[in-house]
Design a protein around this nucleic acid. Structure first.
Lengths: 202, 202
DNA sequence: TAGATTGTTAATCGATTAACAATC
DNA sequence: TAGATTGTTAATCGATTAACAATC
């Protein structure tokens, strides 16, 4: 099956959210209903859904429960992804409590921090370890991605530590650009850019 | 001046970040250097920069300080934008401390929460008010955008409150889809979608 | 001069939207 | 039947990349 583009992944995730929280308690859902809620074109919704291999019914729309399951399958929620959060400050804590990441195949195994008062604490059932444990923890638990929520000044150093342990994906919540080799993917959670996009209007 | 597309806004913000933190201490910077750091095509970097009206010099590149200022002008950092954060939990607190939003024209005026223990507290110099104050605060301070970091169950209700006060932009950090009229923009900070995009690879 | 880099056009590529036959 | 909705093709639109003359 061909990989989905980023835009499609973004929309399918939102469709899944709609099916889970908003358009629940109904056997069928039409492309127009989903499109209206998210202010999208209904052709686009149908095309995205077609990529998940679900068949709709004329006059009815798509079977809600099956559509939801198909999106989950297509987005790979069943593939377990081991991640750790580095930085147990407010942002790291917020993400640990955010939602049930496990529902999406994302297993947050632990947090890491250097602040003595935080080490050994538990956040939503996850332990905070000292940064010096990263070297053992990452290979031992097959951690493929890290969530970076450390202070900006530490971002590059921490990135180098985890890359040395074999991490290929860095989800970067710090307002820093990271220098990384070609085989490492840095995904920027560009907070300022996101706000400015919003102000661009509809 | 024609408005910038979302993608251009995203990249310009990252260029600004590069110029502020990484490629500092040099009089000129080449499109290739910026492109290499962010793993982009250098033609694209030059095109984006052209939209800011900066002229480069052959063999040298672009004057660093002037380029930075031009990006700031083009992205409208000088236009003040009054916002409030609703929800003074870990995420709201993290955003309040995140970076100096004021540098980007984003003035976080206050936070709002319903938890008695939080009301009256100060976070990074900003006061936490009770939600019931929103009705007066938003019109009085010309708040045009709100940052929504409340628990999912409250998201729709709070959105309706602020829309009734005239807010047109909602930066939604909750994992919920909001029902809003056509003239209101909801900008989804789609956390799960963002993670799944990263795993798509380079 | 030779080499490097911009600025810009043309070519390519990809994403979105419109349209409509099929059909329930 | 009439109306509504899918599935899919064709048309449009927009974004990215390649290429290269200009020139410092």
């Amino acid at each position: 099956m061909e990989p989905l583009t980023d835009k499609v992944v973004d929309r399918l995730t939102l469709y899944h959210c709609v099916l889970t929280h908003t358009l629940t308690d109904r056997p069928f859902v039409a492309s127009q209903e989903v499109a209206a809620l998210l202010k999208l074109n209904d052709s686009q919704v149908r095309k995205d859904i077609a990529l998940c291999g679900v068949l709709g019914r004329q006059k009815h729309g798509y079977p809600t429960a099956e559509l939801k399951r198909s999106i989950e399958r297509r987005l790979g929620f069943a593939d377990r992804k081991n991640v750790v959060i580095i930085g147990a400050g407010n942002l790291g804590t917020a993400l640990t409590n955010y939602t049930d990441f496990r529902d999406y195949g994302i297993d947050i195994l632990a947090l890491f921090d250097n602040h003595p008062a935080k080490i050994g604490r538990h956040i939503n059932g996850k332990t905070v370890y000292p940064m010096s444990d990263l070297n053992r923890f990452i290979p031992n638990h097959q951690v493929g991605s890290v969530i970076l929520t450390v202070p900006p000044a530490m971002a590059q150093t921490v990135a180098e530590t985890v890359m040395a342990c074999g991490v290929r994906f860095i989800w970067n919540f710090t307002p820093c650009v990271l220098r990384v080799p070609p085989d490492v993917v840095v995904h920027y959670e560009n907070i300022i850019g996101s706000f400015l996009q919003m102000q661009n209007g509809p």
